[in-house]
């Protein structure tokens, strides 16, 4: 092979690798499976999982009357342990009034502004993380179940494009790490497949609970790409695509990650 031909061959191989297909459904792994034994033990035992502190706070918040309507979450939804079961496994979900999918954080804030007539909670605030972790925990062990209907499909497609298109100064796509190179190392840390099965989760690096949008913004920052603001439709579309990509996998909320 002449040298130019060899170069072309290498480019062709790299090109093929970059265009690798989705991970087959049966080969998907939760981030849990990439963790050390000690970190798994933290997630497995609620009394060792720091996210439990937020969940306990939310049990109180759920009952607290808020806003000018003077209503609590429980006034409409009753006992979260029975009535919120399976809810988080279906989010992001299509919202008729907004004509687009919304995530669980937005759902909580819509309830706050429209039902409780209270001010919306800030993204990554203790209260919003607590409530989403509490609602999420009620779906623990249930399979992620994202509707893939005519309403959702354009947004799912937008999320897929966001996941597979190269972006940022490093010219990377999400898929290059999480579809093509999962299981490898990036600066000593395992690259997971990127299934959002346990959000909001306690990340040891953050030393706090954090949402999926915080994680996505971190990734975008690392790629030196545009980091969309919290609540941006681009981030919700990406959340939607990632949840659909993890369809059928059990919810782990609130998980622990390194």
């Amino acid at each position: 092979m002449t040298r130019p031909a060899a170069v072309l061959f290498v480019i062709a191989v790299l090109g093929a690798a970059a265009a690798a297909a989705d991970i087959p459904l049966a080969e998907r792994k939760s981030g849990y499976e990439f963790m050390a034994r000690e970190t798994r033990a933290m997630q497995d035992d609620d009394s060792a999982n720091p996210a439990t502190l937020w969940v306990l706070d939310a049990e109180t918040l759920w009952q607290r009357k808020e806003g000018s309507a003077g209503k609590s979450c429980a006034d409409c939804h009753g006992d979260a342990r029975t009535n919120m079961r399976g809810v988080a496994a279906r989010y992001p979900a299509f919202n008729e009034a907004r004509g687009r999918p919304i995530d669980l954080e937005q759902r909580v804030n819509i309830c706050r502004t429209e039902q409780q007539r209270a001010t919306p909670l800030a993204f990554e605030s203790k209260e919003l993380l607590a409530l989403t972790a509490y609602v999420g925990q009620q779906s623990r062990g249930m399979p992620i179940d994202i509707a893939n209907d005519a309403h959702i499909r354009p947004f799912l497609e937008a999320g897929r494009v966001m996941f597979t298109e190269r972006q940022g100064q490093l010219n990377l796509s999400c898929a290059q790490c999480h579809d093509d190179n999962w299981g490898q190392k990036l600066a000593g840390a395992a690259i997971p497949q990127g299934h959002p099965t346990g959000y909001p989760l306690y990340r040891l690096e953050w030393q706090t609970l954090g949402s999926l949008q915080r994680r996505l913004r971190n990734c975008l920052f690392g790629m030196r790409a545009v980091s969309y603001p919290y609540g941006a439709s681009e981030l919700v579309d990406l959340e939607l695509y990632l949840m659909w990509r993890a369809r059928g996998m059990p919810v782990e909320t609130p998980a622990v990650r390194p």
Partner: peptide
């Protein structure tokens, strides 16, 4: 007051 969790 801070929230604490005891498992014994």
């Amino acid at each position: 007051m801070a929230r604490a969790l005891i498992n014994a």
